[in-house]
Amino acid sequence: MWGVIKSVLAAFFGVQKEGQRRQDFEQGRPVPFLVAGVLMALVLVGLVALVAVLASR
């Protein structure tokens, strides 16, 4: 679970170690990554929106 989140975070940041990526692609199943990716995209939108709301006060 934590490994999936770490890998998705790395993908969001855009940088991942080649070894880790290889391992994810060879051993992981795609569905957890997709779910985590979609959820974290929503979290990102929420975070930016939160910052915008706080900044506008």
Partner: peptide, 11 residues
Amino acid sequence: HENTLVEVIWT
């Protein structure tokens, strides 16, 4: 063709 440190820095 890759260098994690450099990529982290320039992001």
